[in-house]
Design a protein around this nucleic acid. Structure first.
Lengths: 234, 234
DNA sequence: GTAAAGTTAGACACCATTGTCTAATTCGTC
DNA sequence: GACGAATTAGACAATGGTGTCTAACTTTAC
């Protein structure tokens, strides 16, 4: 009979370290191969080879290809979610130096959530396999851009209380902020290349400048100078 | 021996109509299946069935799977390119009613180039198979967003001569215009659903409003008349 | 050391797919 | 109607993938 070998990580259990190491090794390799070849194109042999593990071990840990695939998705989604929240926590909370702060935030967001390995994988995955696994598409929309959108909207609402921002629709503003921030990055990170730090910075600053031109109130007129934001190169 | 049966469309040749019809039928079906299943997941049998054609006929027209795939790509790329140019030709060329004109243009662009069948296919294709066929990725970047970006930049430059626009970097503005215009559509058209006309309109208007808030000069203040460049076509 | 668990390579049946081949059939044109 | 070209269904070998099994091997816990 088949012994159900599903190895659940028992805390302090025996051989846990070795097993666990293999598990993540398989998971990483599988993510790599699934991302490169798609679900249909990926072969278990290839994954096993890339993980430096025998094919049988793969089958021992994850009953079949489908199971492995789902585990990979879950894993990446969790990681990406954690990264997203840790970055959202750094959203500026005061109006000082708005352009610099928002730019730095946008860079962090792009670097750790959008242009990184996991972000690329998720986007590719959803696009390639979303049709075949509608469930996958749904949880992505809930946990991914949906969550980031509403969270950002709330943050902009908070920020608008203490900064010179004139936003009537926070959801829309959040979406547009994201769109601007990803304007060129999306394409750059489409293929292999990860954008350099300079590219990230430049792109983020351009996006934030435009965003603030649209949504930023000009600095108080009472000071006399009708100095517009866009003319500050003087 | 093998007779090279590559059927080239001879102008006025015999049985051309039937052949041609089958060719496009195969091409369409192949596009559908490749898009749905990816290159690896698509089977020639499935394509043949969907095209209402025998498998052998597929092999008669396109020697092998790879050839068929390339033909599909070329076909879609050509069609998409033609559509893109025909839409770009409708870019507003005067400053009257800028918001409405730009909104209508954005709607046309999205409807005919971004959210339509071909647009979706190309994006999916590039993302799934771009790594395997770097050539594909290159010609897409040249003919796709690259071309659209520079073309739009030129159009904005033209427009800025006759409209209240304050753009210093036309390339950047074009990219940001596209980004804003696609802010929510991208996601909607990610999965099956094509956005409705109302969604298209609403999304385009929001994008254009933000774009004009960032790049539009405010209409002349009635009293102080900042009308130095007011060449408005009555 | 020993025993139990996990791992490995390899063989295996099974299935889907590609691409070829053939013989029968249909289609378009004269 | 007759001819040639295109199309069709089906059989076919070859390939490569999945998932199972087994027998040897290694690691880990005690």
């Amino acid at each position: 009979m088949k012994k159900p070998k599903v190895p659940q990580p028992k805390p302090g259990g025996p051989t846990q370290k070795g097993q666990c190491a293999k598990r993540v090794s398989i998971l990483d390799a599988a993510a790599e191969v699934f991302c490169r070849e798609g679900f249909a194109g990926a072969s278990i042999d290839e994954i096993a080879m890339e993980a430096c593990v025998s094919r049988q071990t793969v089958y021992n840990h994850y009953r079949e290809k489908e199971t492995l695939f789902m585990a990979v998705v879950q894993d990446i989604l969790d990681r990406a979610n954690a990264a997203l929240f840790s970055i959202l926590a750094t959203f500026p909370d005061n109006g000082d130096n708005l352009e610099d702060e928002l730019t730095a935030f946008a860079v962090r967001l792009n670097k750790n959530c959008v242009c990184n390995h996991d972000g690329k994988f998720i986007r590719k995955l959803v696009q390639t396999e979303g049709e075949r696994y509608p469930h996958l598409f749904e949880i992505w929309r809930e946990q991914g851009p949906g969550k980031i959108g509403t969270a950002l909207a709330a943050l902009f609402a908070r920020l608008s209380h203490v900064a010179r921002l004139e936003i009537d629709d926070f959801d829309l503003a959040a979406k547009q902020f994201l769109a601007l921030v990803n304007a060129d990055l999306q394409m750059i990170s489409f293929f292999g290349g990860t954008p350099t730090d300079e590219e990230l910075e430049k792109s983020a600053r351009a996006a934030v400048r435009t965003f603030l031109r649209a949504y930023g109130r000009p600095p108080a007129r009472e000071a006399g100078g009708v100095e517009e934001l866009r003319e500050e190169t003087a």
